[in-house]
Design a binder for these strands. Structure first.
Length: 164
DNA sequence: ATTTACAATATGA
DNA sequence: TCATATTGTAAAT
């Protein structure tokens, strides 16, 4: 867990996101906020430059409801093994498809851990690129979303998913 | 048709 | 020990 951070902004039609990088890759992504409080940094150099380009591109695709061609390396090492398993599962859900918390739980061999999956989704450091918004509660109910439910609905709507 | 209770689960305060 | 982005079963209203 090399947590040393570099924060870079990503302007999009939906606002300015903030990407956070460790020496291993992208380790965090934040939704646009009223006050950008990132420390000014010069233009990224070395691998950062490439990673940031990939992140920017991937984020824009995802916001448009399309599957990103390539993702930057993700540093999910901050999560527990359970959380990392969950996040890895989420990466397999294509745009336009959704799973329930319990299906995700079943996918990692713990069919009864639906609630814990909810916790892991809430702890997802890289929303959107790790598509936690494609996990719904049972019966097509929306469940929750740390970045605000409106984001979940908006993202799913762009992928063609209808919520009840 | 709704509401209420509870067990099972991983994690953090 | 309590609360949480849950679920399934069961019982009572």
């Amino acid at each position: 867990m090399d947590r040393a951070l570099l924060e870079l902004e990503i302007p999009t039609p939906d606002g300015v996101f903030v990407a956070r990088y460790s020496t291993q890759g992208l380790c965090g992504l934040e939704f646009p906020q009223a006050h950008s409080r990132i420390k000014a940094a010069g233009p990224p150099r070395g691998p950062l430059r490439r990673w940031h380009r990939l992140t920017t591109q991937a984020l824009k695709s995802a916001l448009a409801g399309k599957k990103p061609r390539r993702l930057p390396p993700l540093d999910l090492s901050a999560g527990t093994p359970f959380q990392q398993q969950v996040w890895r599962q989420l990466g397999n859900i294509p745009p336009g498809r959704t799973l329930s918390y319990s299906q995700v739980a079943g996918g990692i061999g713990r069919p009864k851990a639906a609630r814990a999956v909810g916790g892991a989704c809430g702890a997802n450091p890289v929303p959107i690129l790790v598509p936690c918004h494609r996990v719904l509660a049972a019966g097509g109910r929306p469940g929750g979303f740390s970045g605000g439910l409106h984001w979940k609905r908006r993202l799913l709507a762009r992928e063609g998913v209808r919520l009840v």
